[in-house]
Design a protein around this nucleic acid. Structure first.
Lengths: 257, 257
DNA sequence: TTTACATTGCGTCATGATGACACAATGTAA
DNA sequence: TTACATTGTGTCATCATGACGCAATGTAAA
């Protein structure tokens, strides 16, 4: 299907297939090269980037819509996904914004078109394993790639605000719940998980105190193996004790870092 | 205006005045008689109760809609109000539910009527000073009164789930932010604020440890006065240091209770 | 008026969590 | 062989927390 045809199809079908006024946007975090990353879509016309998002089926739970967006964009099932905030200011999605884009697509629109109306969006954030993701851009976008959280490019509309809020929520989350199972490979070293925490919190932690504390949670298993091929002393490998990990998610951790 | 006329007016005007598919519901907490209370509306036909809620003006920020609902129902300005969760399952507001009610009002409805469609609702919770509130029922309700949190009556639709989630959020909130300014009178005693915490957390706290910890936050001023007319030793009165209180709201407290 | 009692104000003590830091062991590269 | 970065493990002082003691205060019963 031609790109413009699929855009037209969305425009035509949307009015009756989707819940009006409401959308979901997903902040997808990954971890690679000791850096926290986020997946962003390159806008097809503008030199700006966007969070992957979508509309909600007329009979679809909002959470399911967010899951669907994630699966369509990343191919992943069973993702850690959490609603974190609603962005409901009028003017967050200016009518002109989309009219101009559609004009460039060669599509003339009635300004009463459903997609041009005001949209309130529900923000979700996801934590995913970097290497398991195969990013697939959507119809409206050129590319879909990872960005370092410290080098995020200019974003469309209020997506920067959404991203910042997601990150702030993730930091608070870190104090209450274990994090890492969906961000790290199955086997990882203590320095690796420490880097993850340092990156999310954006501050240095003492190596020895970190180890004492994270082991104290009782959610890690130390394996017999050590990591080979590293330039220095080979560190032990760890894995998550999934049973205890899930218990900790439900019951919460002891507070504070 | 007759009650049924005002309902008809809402039904007629709503289609163009309100954002479709989306509503707000407010969980309004107060504190009285050493008990946590919540304001509930008595349904006009059913022997059930409901959270105060409303629709969102076509150009109104979602937060503003929640504020408006609170002001209309309680007369209060400057309320602590916070969005806490979106409830977006289809079937949370069954079509039949409203059709039956409107029939009892003597109003026959087209099932395509805007208000009968699926609604996603944004949950907000508010903390208010019990004695400052003058509850005003809405058009659709008989009464609007305080209920003890431990004796909440049967609620319509998924409002029980919304209430429970609000309470759970409030408990977590208690670990991160100071709470009480909007729930307690201007001057209060140490046992009073302790009862507030105990009620929200639903567990006993040691009197002496509580005092040490809450004073440690540095958000309270001990006044010269003591509370008179009490049956025992007259306790000191305290008030919030609003400057430090607001700093603590922004920066967070030391974690954990 | 005296006494009993619930409540308040102020403290101690043992324990556990936390932050700062020391030192030996390991593996690579000069 | 040596220098050096990194890892594994432990110590110590400090602070936060939970459990609890005891005297002072004010009301109500004797």
């Amino acid at each position: 299907m031609e790109k413009n045809e699929s855009i037209s199809a969305l425009l035509n079908a949307g009015e009756h297939n989707f819940l009006p006024s409401l959308s979901v946007d997903c902040v997808i975090f990954g971890f690679h090269d000791n850096q926290l990353k986020v997946l962003l879509l390159k806008h097809r016309h503008r030199n700006k980037w966007a969070l992957p998002g979508g509309f909600i089926g007329i009979d679809e739970p909002t959470d399911a819509a967010a899951y669907r967006v994630l699966q369509e964009r990343t191919g992943l099932q069973e993702i850690f996904l959490q609603q974190f905030h609603v962005f409901g200011d009028p003017g967050r999605s200016p009518k002109d914004f989309h009219i101009q884009d559609l004009k460039k697509d060669g599509i003339d629109t009635d300004e009463n078109l459903w997609i041009l109306q005001r949209f309130v969006t529900i923000g979700y954030y996801a934590l995913v394993e970097f290497f398991k993701v195969s990013p697939i851009p959507d119809t409206l976008s050129e590319k879909f790639i990872w960005w370092d959280i410290h080098q995020v490019p200019s974003l469309v509309m209020d997506h920067r605000k959404i991203l910042d809020k997601a990150l702030a929520t993730l930091r608070i989350q870190l104090n209450n719940q274990p994090i890492g199972y969906n961000l790290l490979p199955e086997k990882f070293t203590m320095p690796e998980i420490q880097k993850l925490y340092e990156t999310i919190l954006d501050k240095k932690l003492d190596r020895r105190n970190f180890q004492r504390k994270i082991l104290g949670f009782g959610i890690l298993n130390r394996l017999e193996e050590t990591k080979k091929g590293v330039p220095h002393k080979s560190p032990y490998l760890y894995s998550f004790d999934l049973k205890k990990y899930n218990e900790a998610i439900n019951e919460g951790l002891n507070f504070g870092w």
